Simulated scan of single mutants.
Amino acid sequence: MREQFDTLIHTVTSQIAGQSLDANLQEWLNTHFGADSDWYRDMSASCTQGVADGWMCKYEADGVKYGRVTKPSEASGGFSVDVVSMQDVRGPHHRHPNGEIDLIMPITPGAQFDGCDAGWKVYGPDSAHSPTVRRGAAHVLYLLPEGKIEFTKVPQ
Rank of each mutant, 00 (worst) to 15 (best):
S37H: 04
T31A: 12
S14W: 09
W120I: 05
E74Q: 15
F5T: 02
G18F: 15
I9D: 07
M43N: 00
M43I: 07
G78A: 01
V84Q: 01
E3A: 13
F113P: 04
H129L: 06
Y40R: 02
W120Q: 04
A111K: 00
Q112C: 11
G99R: 00
S14Q: 10
W28P: 02
P145L: 01
D22Q: 09
S37F: 08
A35N: 09
N24W: 00
G91M: 03
D82N: 15
S46M: 11
G34V: 03
V12G: 03
R134Q: 10
G124K: 11
M86E: 06
K58S: 08
H139N: 13
D6Y: 05
Q112K: 14
V133E: 12
T152E: 10
L8I: 05
R41C: 09
D82Q: 13
L25E: 03
L25C: 08
P109C: 03
V154S: 10
I9H: 05
A138K: 06
G115N: 10
I101K: 14
P109Y: 07
G119F: 03
W28M: 08
I16A: 02
S76V: 10
T7F: 08
T7C: 12
M56C: 15
W120P: 03
G119I: 09
Y59C: 11
T132F: 12
C116A: 09
S76Q: 13
D6N: 13
Q156R: 14
H96D: 02
Q87Y: 01
Q26W: 08
L144I: 06
W28L: 15
D38W: 05
